Simulated scan of single mutants.
Amino acid sequence: MTCWGSWANTQKLAAKNWRFELFYWDVAVGLLLFALLAAFTLGTFGAEPGGRTFLEDIQQADLQSIGYGVLGGVFWNIGSFLISAAISLAGLAIGFPIGAGLAWLGGTILGYITEINTTGSSSSNPVLLFSGMAFGIVAIYLSMVAYRRLASQRKGSSSVKGIVLAVLGGLSIAPFYTVTMYGMDPAFGLSGTGKLTPYSGVVCFALGAFLSTFVINPIFMAHPVDSEPVKITEYFKGTLTSHLWGILGGSIWMLGLVVSFISAGQNSTIAYALSNAAPLVGTSWGVFAWKEFKGAPEGTNKILTFMFLLFIAALVLITLSKS
């Protein structure tokens, strides 16, 4: 939750003139590098007795399991591009909670339905789980209300466009966790062959995200959402610091995915729900660190306070829903 709610800050910490399309090339590199680092360290030296190291796991994996991991990375990558574009237009405190919030809600519901269809039952108490989801929906709505109040003082159409991009990004990201988990073994490689351990799963996921960047990013560069088209030659003019911030951002996000998959086990629905409560963290950065609501109309702070309280209530209920 902390990693997924914080990685987007690196976009703001890069150079002010560093476009998010250029920033994202480095994010894709960071995702793949950290996934490989985790696989060749914890995923190799930490294999349980009777389990498989990373290379052994990849060698025995079937193409279907690998394909699910790669496809999960593609779904996430498309949504992440859209949410990054929304952040560049509407700010971290709005683009992130709307996009990531919808991904959180949609992914949790999809995971619950899949768990029921696969096993015939769920490890979650549906009343508590979906009560938490309801609180999350209201919290996301309040974040949109707060932004509309702030946007009323600004000129331009970036507010509407930013919200639309965030919604589309959230819907694209929603299925990524469930799709990736289809190819993974919840018993960490101890229950059979063909499936992936979490460390191999994240490498396949990162590979899907990395390769799809070469298809998706050129489209965004040629048809940007808020400025002039940008050429790939501009990427090589960036400072070392800007490149490192992007790689760090990808690494932070991938760290979140690694520990989320490790924690999932037989309770992937709850693991996803808790991990994707990242909007609480992301909104906190936008409000308190970046002061995105400074100068907002009177009463906006009360709306934000209620939003935070509802997010916290959602987290508590989701945690208690584990049967």
Rank of each mutant, 00 (worst) to 15 (best):
V160H: 15
V160F: 15
K161W: 08
K161L: 13
K161T: 05
K161I: 07
G162M: 11
G162P: 04
G162N: 11
G162W: 05
I163E: 08
I163Y: 06
I163F: 15
V164T: 10
V164G: 08
V164L: 15
V164M: 12
V164A: 14
L165E: 09
L165K: 02
L165I: 05
L165R: 02
L165G: 02
A166Y: 04
A166R: 05
A166C: 11
A166K: 03
A166S: 15
V167S: 10
V167F: 05
V167P: 09
V167A: 09
L168Y: 06
L168Q: 10
L168M: 13
L168F: 08
L168R: 07
L168H: 02
G169Y: 01
G169E: 02
G169A: 04
G169L: 01
G169D: 03
G169S: 05
G169F: 00
G169T: 04
G170F: 01
G170H: 03
G170R: 01
G170V: 01
G170W: 00
G170C: 09
G170T: 00
L171Q: 11
L171T: 11
L171P: 02
S172G: 11
S172L: 08
S172H: 01
S172C: 14
I173F: 00
I173D: 00
I173W: 00
I173R: 03
A174P: 04
A174I: 02
A174D: 03
P175C: 09
P175F: 01
P175Q: 14
P175H: 15
P175L: 14
P175Y: 01
F176N: 04
F176K: 02
F176D: 13
Y177G: 05
Y177E: 01
Y177K: 03
Y177M: 11
T178V: 08
T178A: 05
T178I: 03
T178N: 01
V179H: 00
V179A: 04
V179S: 01
T180C: 08
T180W: 04
T180R: 00
M181V: 15
M181N: 11
M181Q: 09
M181C: 04
Y182G: 06
Y182V: 12
Y182N: 10
Y182D: 08
Y182A: 12
Y182K: 05
Y182C: 11
Y182F: 12
Y182S: 13
G183N: 02
G183K: 03
G183E: 07
G183T: 10
M184N: 07
M184T: 05
M184P: 04
D185R: 07
D185Q: 13
D185W: 00
D185A: 05
P186D: 06
P186Y: 06
P186I: 02
P186M: 09
A187V: 12
A187T: 14
A187G: 11
A187N: 10
A187Q: 12
F188N: 13
G189E: 12
G189W: 04
G189M: 06
G189T: 10
G189D: 13
L190G: 10
L190F: 14
L190K: 13
L190M: 14
L190I: 12
S191H: 09
S191G: 10
S191M: 15
S191C: 11
S191Q: 13
S191K: 14
G192N: 13
G192A: 08
G192L: 07
G192K: 09
G192R: 05
T193G: 14
T193C: 08
T193W: 07
